[in-house]
Amino acid sequence: MGWNWETAQELWPLLMEGLRILLLVTLISSLIALALGLVVALTDRSAPRAVTMPLFAVMEFIRNTPVLVQAVFVWTAVTMWLGTAASPMWTGAIVLGVHYASYTAEAYRAGIDGIPKGQWEAITALSLPKPRAWIAVLLPQALRRSTPALGNYVIALFKEVPILSAIGVTEMVRQVDGYAGLNYTGALEGFTIAGLIFLVVSYPVALLMRKLEKRLAN
């Protein structure tokens, strides 16, 4: 059972279909993670403790438990509620997005905390209204600082999409697994190529983020 180019060729369209779904899920999840994380970070700054304490607890719980179990849990719950099988892709994308929101919220928070004290003082001195101060002064600076961390979380999220194969999202790993199960071959080729595809997509983005991080550090 060595390497077989014909098998690899047969697998290629399946891998491409898997990649398409992979990228789609990454996109949906990232948007959720980036938006929800910001909402959480801002809520954490402005809301009363009665809101922030439970929010903190929920985020802690989400961050410290496996996304795989979360996905199966939510899928089961939604399926019971609907009375019919929930969409694996949408359920998976939302769970992954919320999971990573618990990380991006921290990245946003760090960005906001990193804004020099003088900026807040200047806002006070200029009597800028709060919404204006956030939109014009604080968020642009915070986002700049948070960008590399956020970017790295998106890469990490991308690499964790295959976890959703557990609830039937037909990304690359699921495709290869399905093929290998039917044909008793192709696992070596499929997983190797899938790994390389991950590397080819994620490495340039990772490099970009490192460059950005260095530029911000100087």
């Binding site: 295959p162 899938a194 490495y203």
Partner: peptide, 21 residues
């Protein structure tokens, strides 16, 4: 870079297939 760039899930499946080989 190799182990960071490829997904853990893929690595796990890959090890399961390749190590016995």
């Amino acid at each position: 870079e190799f182990f960071r760039g490829t997904s853990l899930v893929v690595q796990l499946f890959w090890f399961v297939v390749v190590l016995p080989l």
